[in-house]
Design a protein around this nucleic acid. Structure first.
Lengths: 202, 202
DNA sequence: TGCACTATGTATAACCG
DNA sequence: TCGGTTATACATAGTGC
């Protein structure tokens, strides 16, 4: 007539509810007995979908009392949590360091690019030619030249009319060099055209 | 052989302790079963003079979770509706905060953009170079440069018709160079247009 | 849906080594 | 003090109203 309890989720909704009601009632009763018999502080809280308010024993206030006592102790026992947090923090820091490094590399590249353009325009101070700069510049120029060569090849091969090609290449070169220190009136006019151009591309 | 439980304090110290041990163990077991069978959130805490640490089920952390949930409810201990409204409000506030933050970031970006152009035009007061501004400016300029570089690449690689290309490219290059060190009336106009342009890129 | 019933599984009081 | 055993009180699954 009565089966042994299988310690697993009761699929049937109705019997689950019934079981919950019976067992939670029994639990609270036992908790009550324990406290009466042994005179200890205790509390129990059960949330269920079957009642709008959580079951709390011995009462809301009683629970509060026990809980605050428990929290007090918990504060002293947070070593383990602290450790977890520490390792978490370590992870985060590691990630941030990676980001930082990536940014550093990018930044260095920009720097060298500027430096290169400055060189091309002869606007570089003597003292800027330190070992590191020159070394990085070498590497960067190589990369840059490759790009340009590649570009020229493509344009040359795809080149439609021969007359239009050279201006392209020159224009390209100018475009790349441009960000460094250009000034002057002509410049200003071009800006306006540029705006339209940019707009058209969006 | 076995007496009926008298629901009163057990005077005998020894049997009280024994009873406590047995019953508390049984309680936790039943709590465990209840949770497994019905899939509800629950916790139990028992303080006793017999153990240095309080008995807590399902675990310190589990108790914390249930307890905080309980506290949340307790605070709004009015009606279930109130609770729903409160949580609804909390959601709304959270969303509004997100919006606010997003707006703040956008706003700051605009600010820094203006600042950047002002810098380039030499129209910046000394006092404006505080740490925060400079830091944000750095970040923003980087972003800005990347955008421009990207733009150059696209325009360089996509060169369409031969006749229209050279002016475009030159215009682009000028636009990119223009914000640097330009002054004068025309410039001011350009900056404004330029800002709109950037905005379009966002 | 919920309560009441009852057969049966479980918890545990008392005891023991 | 503790862990194990046993008899028995108690809790509760399944059932029907």
């Amino acid at each position: 007539m009565r089966s042994k309890v299988k310690l697993s989720f009761i699929e049937n909704k109705q019997s689950r509810k019934t079981t919950f009601k019976k067992r939670s009632k029994g639990l609270m009763k036992k908790l009550d007995e324990l406290v009466k018999l042994c005179d200890v502080k205790a509390c129990g809280i059960i949330f269920s979908p079957y009642e709008s308010n959580p079951l709390a024993w011995p009462s809301r206030e009683g629970v509060d009392e026990v809980v605050s006592k428990f929290k007090d102790l918990s504060v002293n026992n947070q070593t383990k949590k602290m450790v977890d947090q520490a390792s978490f923090m370590r992870q985060m820091i590691s990630k941030e360091k990676d980001k930082l490094h990536k940014l550093y590399v990018e930044n260095r590249e920009s720097q060298i690019q500027e430096f290169m353009f400055a060189c091309l325009k002869g606007e570089v101070m003597e003292y800027q030619f330190d070992k590191t700069n020159v070394k990085d510049l070498r590497i960067y120029m190589k990369k840059y030249l490759n790009k340009l060569t590649h570009r020229i090849e493509i344009l040359t091969e795809n080149g439609e009319s021969s007359s239009s090609l050279p201006p392209h290449v020159i224009a390209d070169a100018d475009a790349l060099a441009a960000p460094i220190g250009n000034t002057g009136q002509i410049q200003n006019q071009n800006v306006n055209q540029n705006q339209q151009q940019l707009h058209g591309h969006e």
